[in-house]
Amino acid sequence: MNNVFVICEIDEGKVADVSLELLTKGRTLANELKCKLEAVALGHNIEGIEKELYPYGADVVHVGDDERLNPYTTLPHTAVITGLFEEEKPQIALLGATTFGRDLGPRVSSALQSGLTADCTALEIGDHEDKKAGKTYKDLLYQIRPAFGGNIVATIINPDCRPQMATVREGVMKKEIYDKNYKGKLNKLDINKYLKPEDLVVKVIERHMEKSKVNIKNASIIVSGGYGMGSKENFNLLYELAEVIGAEVGASRAAVDAGFAEHDRQVGQTGVTVRPKLYIACGISGQIQHVAGMEDSSMIIAVNNDPNAPINKIADYVITGDVAEVIPKMIKYYKQNTK
């Protein structure tokens, strides 16, 4: 009872990376709270999936294996999870901020009348004093996220409602094996106990999933462009540079919104979090939402015509100048020096 839960996303029979990242984070939180870490995995033909989860520190794995749980639809998953949560009363429940987690999380939180914070960039345990009500709360989950277009960082708490729910983007937390011989307990769920006929009204009639073409998460060098690139044509300069130095192309949200790049390339709080060896930020001002997704890069080069752009504060090299002039020079001198 009152443990930390991670709702795992199962993708073609495999656990999604973001769920393993959250188990790693959940293990740390559970240790701090001196409670257990439990995982929920729902799908079909997923026998043995618990063995993938134990090494990340899961003490209990609840598995629901039923054809009605695959492919994912909102209502059956919601019914099973709210039913299970009413029995188990978790204090914390975490989900990946994927299309899965962002569809399921709010539905579950509404059903349980419990708070949910989206796209957290950090999770911590801490106390809270409500001076007005004269109440002190111990060991709450601090859900930390940029807000208001990234101009501020807010710490959100749920003092009274349980579970305290949060979603986190893929790549924000680090995935680490806790103990490769760690052994948890399997709890097979009786799905019939939770599902009602009206949960099965939505049908998936067609599905085309493709492997993402863009892989910026694992790239060791990223050349990234922002709104300051000015146009889609100028963005092509980034592809040229990336091609020459063996990099992937990333983009800020403003650049994606402006149609300069596709959404898969977005780096930041609502995109992908990256930790490359080198991050070249071109025409990116450096709003916190973007910085949250790339500040752990080993080296950052900022190219910007504004000498006071916020990105310059976290950069190792600041090139003040026009991107359309600087990038071709980088290509030229890279080629010259590698000949």
């Binding site: 749920n158 009274d160 409602c161 504060k313 190792d316």
Partner: peptide, 20 residues
Amino acid sequence: PTKVKKIENIVFQAKEAKKL
């Protein structure tokens, strides 16, 4: 159910950047 505990303005820790 969710309350804002704290709002912080963003202040980046300035690194010593090489200016080019």
